[in-house]
Amino acid sequence: MNLTINGEARAMAPLPHLAALVTTLGLDPRKVAIERNLEIVPRSAYEQTPVADGDRIEIVHFIGGG
């Protein structure tokens, strides 16, 4: 399965849902926000959201800023 995550092409083994992707990437789901194909995915829906070949995923978090 080929995904584009934060602008980078990535080949991944098939994943059951978005929550599995977050875990696979080593991220804490409580500290990120995710967009799948330009649509926000609510944190409560990660386990119900499929990850499909060709998906464009953005994963962001808060950093320092003015």
């Binding site: 500290k31 994963i59 962001v60 978090h61 808060f62 950093i63 320092g64 003015g66």
Partner: peptide, 29 residues
């Protein structure tokens, strides 16, 4: 406190995170 939103660093997810130091239960973000 003001904060920015940016892509997470996928190559090193263990990097320090803002929310672990400047905590959202102490400051209004």
């Amino acid at each position: 406190v003001t904060v920015a939103i940016r892509r997470v660093n996928l190559s090193d997810p263990s990097q320090p995170m803002l929310v672990d130091h400047v905590k959202p239960d102490r400051f209004t973000f």
